[in-house]
């Protein structure tokens, strides 16, 4: 069980690192973009003419929801695999 469990935990860490990297790039991209490209960010976007800065800020909310959902769904599979490993070990 030891090795397989370690492999499973490693996979979980990989997922967390990937999701975190994406989340941080997306999140810190907002202050960085409004600092370095204020003209572009304050210009209207094609979507309902709202500025890129507003659009980007709004997108942070669904981004959070989507990442939470992805993590939640993948972890369901993780739980199933974990249960199998633990039960196999007990048997």
């Amino acid at each position: 069980m030891g090795d397989e469990l370690q492999k499973l935990v490693k996979q979980k860490r990989m997922l967390v690192m990937l999701l975190t990297m994406f989340a941080f790039l997306f999140y810190f991209g907002l202050p960085l973009s409004i600092t370095f490209f204020p003209e572009i960010m304050n210009a209207p976007s094609p979507i309902m003419q709202i500025s890129w800065a507003w659009l980007y800020a709004f997108l942070q909310i669904p981004m959070t929801w989507v990442l939470v959902f992805v993590y939640y769904s993948v972890m369901k599979r993780f739980d199933r695999l974990l249960k199998k490993l633990v039960q196999g070990d007990a048997a």
């Binding site: 967390v16 999701l19 975190t20 989340a23 999140y27 907002l30 202050p31 800020a57 942070q60 909310i61 981004m63 959070t64 990442l67 939470v68 993590y71």
Partner: peptide, 16 residues
Amino acid sequence: LYSIGFLVSYLVVMFF
């Protein structure tokens, strides 16, 4: 921008 920071912080809580 305050709201955004408060919300996204829950990703750190959830993942780590």
